[in-house]
Computed example of a mutant assay.
Amino acid sequence: MKSPGITIKDIAKVLGISPSTVSRALKDHPDISQSTKDQVNKLAVEMNYRPNPIALSLRSKKSNVIGVVIPQIVHYFFSSVISGIEKVANEYGYSVIISQSSESYVKEVEVCQTFLHSIIDGLLISVSKETDHYDHIKLLDEEGIPIVFFDRIIEGFDSDYVVIDDYNGAYQATEHLIVEGRRRIIHFSGPPNRLISKKRLAGYLDAHRNNGVVIDESLIIQCDEFHKAIESTQQLIDERVKFDAIFTVNDFTAAGVIKILRENNISIPGDVSVVGFGNDHIAEMLEPTLTTVSQPGFAMGEKAMKMLMDRINLAAPPEYKKEVLKTQLIVRNSSRKRS
């Protein structure tokens, strides 16, 4: 007698493996061992598992539509990524549906569920800074929807991705400050659960070590937004913390730093140098203009979309592609050499 409603999750539970592993085993994915494939297929027969015919029918039809999930479109970096994505999508005859998570895990889950129940041929995603659980993305993967991550990836999730060389970018920014004579360099860091934050912090720390500068961990402060930077910078000044430079995780945070330093009549870069990350348009609008790390957003969008097209068209190799794009330090007036 047929067991009602047997799903991939039921098979996974019995075998003590993830649903995504079951899904890939059933699809004869090369990343899954033969013994696991044999176990999964044997149990699927025993449990009388049958794929959802409606879902299969929907997935077998191409819509020529790609879903894109980004944290925030307001940032120049992400708008540049979108431009790169759309350029390649147009070349392949694809349309793009863009949704913002607004840095919210809950909103990201809602967006992914919407894409799951619509007809998209693939997904490009950069996860929110709140995201710690990834079941909503695994569900898309289990449905056979190709996924490519860009900028912010999920550690341990097997997929193609394109990222920035965050480590080297942060290293260059910090070493630049050290070469300019700065020794008390504050780092306004990003969320500790995000790999980009970890990489930038690692670059900051290694630049200190490799240049013989003592690391003061009290100068590492989690702060990644304009308004938080206003509060944190003023607090540092009020508490008379000694510092001669601030390296921020993004340019909007640096803008908050510059605002408060100027309001307190602290000379930039005479007393304190400021370096951001991202080379947002705001970097050249600030006074003084902001030294920052340029990241190739447009190229990231192009490469991520091309990877996804290769997956959709079965032109990609079985192993996942992992591409790291170079950054460039752009020196401006906020960190010029002391006279």
Rank of each mutant, 00 (worst) to 15 (best):
G93P: 13
Q39P: 01
M307E: 12
I178L: 05
T114F: 11
G144P: 15
K242S: 12
E180T: 08
F157S: 05
N313T: 15
S267T: 06
N90D: 04
D132H: 13
Y94V: 07
N90C: 02
F277D: 07
T327E: 09
A44L: 07
V241L: 08
T289C: 08
V241G: 03
V331Y: 03
K228R: 12
N250M: 09
I70E: 06
G156I: 07
T289I: 00
P288L: 02
Y94W: 00
S99T: 03
I164E: 00
L26F: 06
H117P: 03
D28V: 03
E108R: 13
K138Y: 15
D244A: 04
N90E: 10
K198Y: 02
I154C: 14
L308R: 14
L195I: 03
L286Y: 08
I221H: 12
S101K: 10
G84L: 04
K337C: 00
V96K: 08
A255P: 14
T7P: 07
A255N: 04
V179P: 01
V96Y: 12
S60R: 14
T291M: 05
V249P: 12
S57G: 15
K37T: 13
E302K: 15
P191G: 14
V293L: 13
P51N: 09
D141K: 09
R183M: 04
S80R: 13
V22Q: 01
L308M: 11
V162A: 12
A44V: 04
I73G: 04
A255E: 13
I154D: 05
T248M: 05
K87V: 00
A173I: 00
Y204S: 04
D238I: 10
T289M: 03
E217D: 15
M1R: 09
S189N: 11
S33K: 15
M47Y: 13
T291A: 09
A170Q: 03
F252R: 13
S334I: 00
F78W: 10
R336F: 11
V40I: 02
V74A: 14
P71V: 02
K129D: 14
D166H: 15
I153L: 06
A316F: 07
E46G: 04
K13E: 15
I186V: 15
R24V: 02
E143W: 01
E91W: 00
E108G: 10
Q34F: 00
R194P: 00
S118P: 15
A44Q: 08
E323S: 10
Y134W: 11
F226M: 05
D251C: 02
D280E: 13
V68M: 04
T21E: 00
L290A: 12
D151V: 01
V81R: 13
V14G: 07
N279P: 03
I97H: 06
I178K: 06
D158I: 08
S18M: 08
V293S: 14
K27P: 01
V40G: 08
V257N: 08
D280Y: 05
D28C: 02
N264T: 07
D165G: 00
I85T: 01
A245D: 09
I11W: 08
Y161I: 02
S57E: 09
S197E: 06
V148T: 10
H117C: 06
F252G: 12
A283G: 08
H29S: 15
K303T: 03
E239T: 14
I73P: 01
